[in-house]
Simulated scan of single mutants.
Amino acid sequence: MRGLTAVRGTLTMDLTVPLWRTLPWRALAAAGALGLLIAGFPLVTGADPAPWQTLMLLRGAALVGALGLAFLLDDPARHLTAPVPTPRLLRQALRVALVAPLAALWWTAVLLLTPVASRPPAGGVTLEALAVGALALAAAALAVRLTDEARPGPFVAAFLLFTAVLTPLLAPEDWALFVQADDPRWSVGHDRWAVLAAAVAVLGAGCGPEPSGRRRGR
């Protein structure tokens, strides 16, 4: 058991540099820059937004960041790496782990760019951003599991945009997912955001392993 753990640890270290090089840096950088521009719009223009406007800017920045994450599992060499001894779930988890610190720094910058006077509670809006990002990653993992597409990112991003448009229209009003910070339902709504984040994270992890039938075929 210890020998197997040591071998997997060595394989993980050997994979880190190649995975770092193959991450979709252009998509991530473009999404990050656009998100910062959205959040910093009042600072650049000298505007004094109302609290609901600042919340909309933060939600928009979170969605843009999630669109960048939709490309995170794109792997042009997917069909070449399938036979390697390191499980696909571990490779995907390593991709997420490499980007997570940068994403946390980016979101901190997004929050700091918004006006303090109209900024919503950081915890609640951060939970929303986590849930949307987890949804993007889960959708990407599902696309990788169900298809042989090496770069499902564009399709996942389109799905995410479609979901972002329809959810406010179709979600039951008593779910209170998109209420303002001064709404009494803010706390209850974010309990549901926490459940949503946990559910899509479990879904993404469950989609990570490659189906046994496909492994045997290869």
Rank of each mutant, 00 (worst) to 15 (best):
A194N: 01
A143N: 09
T167A: 15
V156E: 05
A122L: 08
F178D: 00
P184T: 07
G123H: 07
P120R: 09
L130R: 08
E173L: 13
P115R: 14
L177M: 05
W186T: 00
V195P: 00
T167G: 05
A122R: 09
E149T: 13
V188N: 08
L137E: 02
T147A: 14
T126Q: 06
P184L: 09
H190G: 01
T167P: 02
E128V: 04
G189K: 11
P121A: 06
S187M: 09
A157C: 13
G133M: 01
L130Q: 05
W193M: 07
D183N: 15
L161Q: 07
A157N: 12
E173I: 11
L146W: 14
R119L: 13
L196K: 03
V179A: 04
R151T: 13
L137M: 10
L177D: 00
L130A: 14
G153H: 09
D191Y: 09
W186G: 01
A158M: 14
W186N: 01
A138Q: 02
W175Q: 05
P168K: 11
D191F: 07
A138M: 03
A197T: 04
A171R: 06
F162C: 12
W186D: 02
R119I: 04
R145C: 07
A136Y: 05
L130S: 05
A129G: 05
L142Q: 12
L177G: 02
D174K: 08
E128S: 13
G123W: 10
G124W: 09
V125G: 01
L130N: 00
L170S: 08
A131T: 03
V116Q: 15
L166N: 04
L177Y: 06
L127T: 05
A134P: 00
R119D: 02
V125D: 01
G153S: 07
G133W: 00
P172N: 07
D191I: 05
G153L: 07
L146I: 02
L135A: 13
G189A: 12
R185Q: 15
L196Q: 06
D148F: 14
A157T: 12
A181T: 01
F178T: 00
L142E: 11
A194I: 01
P184Q: 07
D182E: 13
V179P: 00
R145W: 11
D148T: 14
D174C: 02
E149F: 11
